[in-house]
């Protein structure tokens, strides 16, 4: 029973973070700020969804399940690591490409443009 509550809380946090990430993608003014919302909130949401899955798998295993549940949890963990690393690197690639394509960020300071002019 307790495990079920933990699973529900993890999934709720994950879905809330994903929803806020989508709201950020739709609301923010330019590419860079949208990337902030996308990278951080969706990665955080998927981390918590995966934690919910791992909690479910562990509870099933401890309740007398077979070794297949452990395999499922291990592979979920691997997928989570792959997702977290690739999301961050993909965000660098997109922001660098956007800057090279000549899209200037809206904002108060832009130290990068000072360097490119020199």
């Amino acid at each position: 029973m307790d495990a079920e509550i933990i699973i529900f809380i993890c999934i709720a946090i994950g879905l809330l973070a994903c929803t806020l990430g989508v709201a950020g993608i739709l609301r923010f003014p330019d590419v860079y700020t949208r990337l902030h919302a996308e990278t951080k909130l969706t990665t955080f949401g998927s981390i918590f969804l995966c934690l919910g899955i791992i909690a479910y798998v562990l509870s099933q295993y401890l309740a007398g399940g077979d070794a297949q549940y452990i395999v499922l949890g291990l592979h979920t963990l691997l997928a989570l690591i792959a997702l977290a690393f690739t999301n961050a690197i993909g965000a660098h690639a997109i922001s660098r490409a956007a800057y090279r394509a000549g899209i200037k960020p809206e904002g108060v300071v832009d130290r990068l443009s000072e360097v490119e002019q020199k």
Partner: peptide
């Protein structure tokens, strides 16, 4: 702009991966 579309596509990919993971647990298929 084009980067906006890439950002949206990246988000869709992340959600798809999460959805496949949840499918895997719901049907208990590794």
């Amino acid at each position: 702009t084009a980067p906006d579309r890439v950002v949206a596509l990246d988000a869709i990919n992340t959600f798809t991966v999460c959805a496949i993971l949840i499918f895997g647990v719901a049907f208990q298929e590794t």
